[in-house]
């Protein structure tokens, strides 16, 4: 199985590994909750090298990104990053993606690891002869440094810390880096890409700055506390951004794949909606548990324990979208329990 070039470093630090979209990656070191709290209270570092990443460069790069993704890169400028999505002709989410606009005609596209090949192929197919599409995953390591103390650590290591949704480039340990003020935790910090050669030095420097090694288990509980959607659970090819409550990611002022279907859904009303909940207890309402609210039925998409709230939280789809005051229930084993509807983020940040 492919893995990060830092695998041995993680193993020596006590990491337990698991399969993330076909990549063997650290699930946890000390424990999910301790790592979660380190990110909320100080700073943690995640190896997220399984995430897809490729460069689109050349005269047609911006046009390709604008057409293939539903947010509009033209609303930002070089040196900034944007959350966006690749849709299919039915308006379904093929992937949710971060774009780093590095300079005029050079952008990095970061799809989910599991969708990397398919999304890169779309760009390669659409790009004109003057535009190059170059995979970056095999030759680079991507580290996410996250937490209230992350900017200080990043600045001490890189000499600069990119602000929220800003992109910075420079040199670290004699090799180039690209960093962006993005992440998946709701905290400040950055994701930093470096060639495999300088990755061990970057990892060590960040740890020396005080960052706690964190696995992808904590990344999942952190993102869920913020209500951030996870592709494959909260989003997939059959859900539209409107159903997921992510209409703000769609920019209607440009032409993009899936726009007609989304316009039709916007006019007719969405058939279902993603709703958030707190169970009021510690028992986790897991993926696939049945949900209902009056006439609306569905199931839990993501559910886990919130270390900050010390209780279970989650997201699930209901068809049709329920009225605001209809009580929400979840089936635990054979028992329906009323849970509290809660609009994400579940914690204040």
């Amino acid at each position: 199985m492919p893995t990060t070039s830092l695998r041995e470093v993680h193993a020596a630090a006590g990491a337990r590994f698991t399969d993330f979209g076909g990549w063997e990656m650290p699930l946890q070191y000390e424990g999910v909750i301790a790592e979660h709290m380190a990110v909320r209270e100080s700073v943690g570092v995640f190896d997220v090298s399984h995430l897809g990443r490729f460069e689109v460069a050349g005269p047609g790069a911006v046009d390709a990104v604008r057409y293939l993704l539903c947010n509009d890169i033209a609303k930002i400028e070089p040196g900034k990053a944007q959350y966006t999505m690749a849709l299919n002709d039915s308006g379904g989410v093929e992937d949710d993606i971060i774009v780093w606009w590095i300079d005029d005609e050079r952008l990095w596209v970061l799809p989910n690891g599991v969708n990397f090949d398919e999304i890169m192929a779309r760009f390669a197919e659409h790009a004109g002869p003057e535009t190059t599409v170059r995979p970056l995953r095999d030759d680079t390591v991507l580290l996410a440094v996250q937490g209230p103390d992350a900017p200080g650590v990043i600045e001490s290591v890189l000499g600069t810390a990119p602000g929220r949704f800003r992109v910075a480039t420079g040199e670290f340990a004699g090799h180039p880096y690209v960093a962006a003020g993005t992440g998946y935790t709701g905290e400040r910090g950055a994701e930093i890409a470096v060639p495999a050669e300088s990755a061990p030095a970057l990892w060590q420097a960040v740890l020396a700055g005080g960052a706690v090694p964190c696995g992808l288990g904590a990344r999942d509980t952190l993102r869920l506390e913020m209500g951030f959607a996870l592709w494959g659970q909260d989003l997939d090819e059959t859900t539209t951004p409107l159903e997921a409550g992510l209409g703000w990611v769609v920019n209607w002022d440009h032409d993009f794949v899936g726009k007609d279907a989304l316009l039709a859904q916007k006019a007719s009303g969405r058939p279902r909606a993603l709703v958030g909940f707190k169970t009021g207890g510690r028992r986790i309402a897991r993926h696939g548990y049945a949900m209902r609210a009056g006439e609306s039925i569905g199931e839990v998409a993501s559910g886990n324990f919130s270390p900050i709230l010390q209780g279970a939280i989650g997201l699930g789809y209901l068809t049709p979208p329920p009225k605001a005051d209809t009580p929400l229930e979840i089936e635990f084993r054979d028992e329906w329990q009323v849970v509290e509807r809660a609009k994400p983020p579940f914690i204040e940040r």
Partner: peptide
């Protein structure tokens, strides 16, 4: 199991 959060 990892971090235990609930027991019935």
């Amino acid at each position: 199991l990892g971090d235990i959060v609930y027991i019935d």
